[in-house]
Structure formats: C-alpha cells, structure tokens
Design a protein around this nucleic acid. Structure first.
Length: 229
DNA sequence: CCCTGATTCGC
DNA sequence: GCGAATCAGG
C-alpha cells in the first residue's frame, strides 16, 4: 500500500483526533502500526501524549546521573533530545483539537481548589479537558486512557454526521456525544473565523476572565458528565 | 504479557 | 520515503 493523499489525510485527522496508531493502522488497512507512526513523524505530526514519555517526576535530589545505556547493537549516537515545549496557550489563537479519545475520561468536577482559596477560573474544553491560564500549571494532567473498547470504524455507521474524517479548518470541531459511540460526531457548524469551533461552542470553550465574584457556574460539559442521550 | 509512541536504520 | 525491529514506559 502506498500513501495516497487520502490515506495521508485520514492518518492526519485520526492522529490529531487522538486515535492510536493501531486504530489508524487497521482503519487504513494494509499498513502496520509502525508504518503509521513512522509516517506520522515524517509528516511532522508528532508527540501527543505518549504513554512512554509521560514521565516528568520530581526526583529526590540525589540522582543526577542516569545510567548511560550501553550501546550494544546500534552505533552510539549522541542525539540530544529536544524537550517538547508544551505550554498552555495564553490566548485561544489556534488551539489544537483536544483529542477525543475513546475512553471514558474520568471527569473530576472542576471544583475550585479550596485549600488555595484563590478561585482560578478554568474553562472547559471539549471532552471536559480543563483549560488553564498561563499562570497556573500542573494539576489536571491529561487522563491516561484505558483503551480497547471501541468500534474504531468511523466510516460506516456515521453517515451525514460530521465525522473525524470530515474535520477541517472550516468546521466546528466540538465533539457531540461520547466517543466510541456509533453516533459520536462533531458539531460541524461553520467555525467562528480564527477559531476551531463555531460561535456557540467558542462561547463554551473560551470564557473570559470575569471580575471576581461576577461569575456564573460553568456550562454543562460536552461529555464526561452524566450521559444525556 | 498486553498496550502505547519513539527511534533507528537497512532497504 | 518507507516500515520492521527495537526500545522504553504504562
């Protein structure tokens, strides 16, 4: 199989949409998971929460020397690793689509942290992912997904709904329904220019920092809350 | 063991 | 450019 434009487009969309390489691979057919990953990298797509890289622990100050690994087979290559710059965007200029993964992301209620009584405002993105201002960092790390219970065939069952494959810069990417369900789809309305969502969903995704005390309770989560359908 | 993505390197 | 083999972490 070769990488036609269509297959590449599918790969891109699924990759950006948060599908795993395996899912993409067998959706495309005729390629291996490795092929997908390799291609994704060659395309410049990369990163995305990888189970293998999701470690950034605070170490005890007594371990400055990680054991150098023995170059057994491969020629030793001093390849410095560029640290991926993963910062919370200050402005909602062009936020990447938060990956609608096929897991029930455990949603903790976005309760304001009581112990530090400063009520940070958090807005809620699709999938119930919390957006954070530049000032805050840390707590809600992206949910590490359990997987494997998913039809993973976006093509057949969704007809006129906006599927993963229909996403483009022109349509609203707000997820509708729960991922993994047969009728899971995306909003698909015309986007609010400059944003990945339509006007309505921009209102959900981006919430202005209001003066203290003048805030309304957060709108219902797109999913992650109690199921409504 | 299963899974994941990342990387390498012969083709 | 491609992707199997390998690596490394969950």
């Amino acid at each position: 199989m070769s990488w036609t434009d269509e297959r590449i487009a599918t790969l891109k969309k699924m990759w950006e949409g948060g599908s795993t390489a395996s899912q993409i691979a067998d959706e495309l057919g005729g390629v291996s998971r490795n092929a997908v990953i390799g291609k994704a990298h060659r395309l410049g797509l990369k990163s995305r929460p990888s189970p293998v890289k999701a470690n950034d622990k605070k170490k005890a100050p007594a371990k400055p020397a990680p054991a150098p690994k023995p170059a057994a087979k491969k020629a030793a290559k001093p390849a410095p690793k560029a640290a991926p710059a993963a910062a919370a965007p200050a402005k909602p200029a062009a936020p990447a689509v938060p990956g609608p993964r096929q897991d029930g992301a455990p949603q903790s209620q976005p309760l304001p942290n009581r112990s530090s009584n400063l009520p940070k405002i958090v807005s809620v993105g699709p999938g119930g992912f919390l957006r954070q201002g530049p000032g805050d960092q840390q707590p809600p790390i992206p949910p590490a997904p359990p997987r494997r219970l998913v039809p993973a065939k976006p093509s057949a069952e969704i007809a006129d709904k906006t599927s993963l494959l229909d996403l483009s810069d022109k349509v609203c990417r707000w997820p509708m329904g729960h991922p993994g369900e047969p009728d899971f789809h995306f909003c698909g309305e015309a986007v609010n220019p400059g944003f990945p969502y339509c006007v309505e969903h921009c209102g959900r995704a981006y919430q202005a920092q209001l003066p203290r005390g003048a805030r309304r309770p957060p709108p219902p989560l797109p999913f992650g809350g109690p199921r409504v359908r």
